[in-house]
């Protein structure tokens, strides 16, 4: 599903590489944590996947397609297959919960009839059916992140990328969000969670990839952060 072959990304010539010769393969339906301190290259990793950046060297393949070969006008179609959830939720404050989720279908030109059918189902899945008419500012952080997740999965992406999804949330709420992501993963979506929340990684016992100063230093199945370096 996602394949990095000898991927290096450097922003400026004299600086250390943001990512250095990364090789990894994530299969369809996997649930993967990518951990590392700030500056380890996690944000660069996500931006490369969305083709916000292009690698300095190496190739990135999604579903066996080299995404660096995409033309500019094809990039939006790549992004439609990859749902993204951010630490700061990035909801539109002037739209209701329902409208925020529907918006993701509107902008790719889905018909209103489909939107009316599908949005309630997505809200039900994230447990927010009763808050459809609320505005983001009226919701708790955990609820806002659920809206963001509903928006990210509404168009059935094959990959869901979460950038520090629990970074702004308390441990209890974080656990609920992780359970939701696990649920989405069991429905067949490949889930990649970038985080530095070590406790949660240890609790979930999923595949764990560790980045440090742009290098991939560990890749363990059912890993915990404690034994990642063992």
């Amino acid at each position: 599903m996602i394949e990095f072959v000898n991927v290096t990304k450097s922003y400026e010539k004299n600086q250390a590489d943001a990512l250095n010769n990364i090789n990894l393969f994530i299969d369809k339906g996997e649930f993967v944590f990518i951990v590392g301190r700030s500056g380890a290259g996690k944000s660069t990793f996500i931006k490369l996947l969305q083709r916000e950046l292009e690698p300095t060297n190496g190739t990135i393949k999604i579903k066996n397609h080299d995404i660096s070969k995409l033309k500019k006008r094809e990039i939006p179609y790549l992004r439609r297959r990859i749902g993204v959830v951010y630490q700061d939720f990035r909801l539109l404050e002037n739209k209701t919960v329902y409208e925020n989720v529907a918006y993701a279908m509107e902008i790719i030109g889905r018909p209103q009839s489909k939107i009316r059918n599908k949005v309630p189902l997505a809200l039900e899945m994230v447990g927010l059916s009763d808050k459809a008419d609320r505005y983001p500012s009226e919701l708790s952080g955990g609820e806002q992140q659920r809206v963001a997740i509903a928006r990210a999965i509404i168009n059935n992406p094959s990959i869901l990328i979460c950038d520090e999804p629990t970074g702004n949330l308390d441990p209890e709420t974080s656990r609920e969000i992780m359970a939701l992501l696990d649920d989405i993963n069991r429905h067949g979506t490949t889930v990649v969670v970038v985080t530095h929340d070590v406790d949660m990684v240890n609790e979930m016992k999923k595949r764990l990839i560790v980045l440090d100063e742009g290098k991939l230093i560990a890749d363990n199945m059912k890993g915990t952060y404690d034994n990642a370096f063992a």
């Binding site: 969305q50 006008r73 939006p76 179609y77 992004r79 439609r80 902008i107 790719i108 168009n155």
Partner: peptide, 10 residues
């Protein structure tokens, strides 16, 4: 930026 990340065309 939200529109772009969701995959809206330019």
């Amino acid at each position: 930026s939200v529109m772009k990340s969701i995959g809206a065309t330019n």
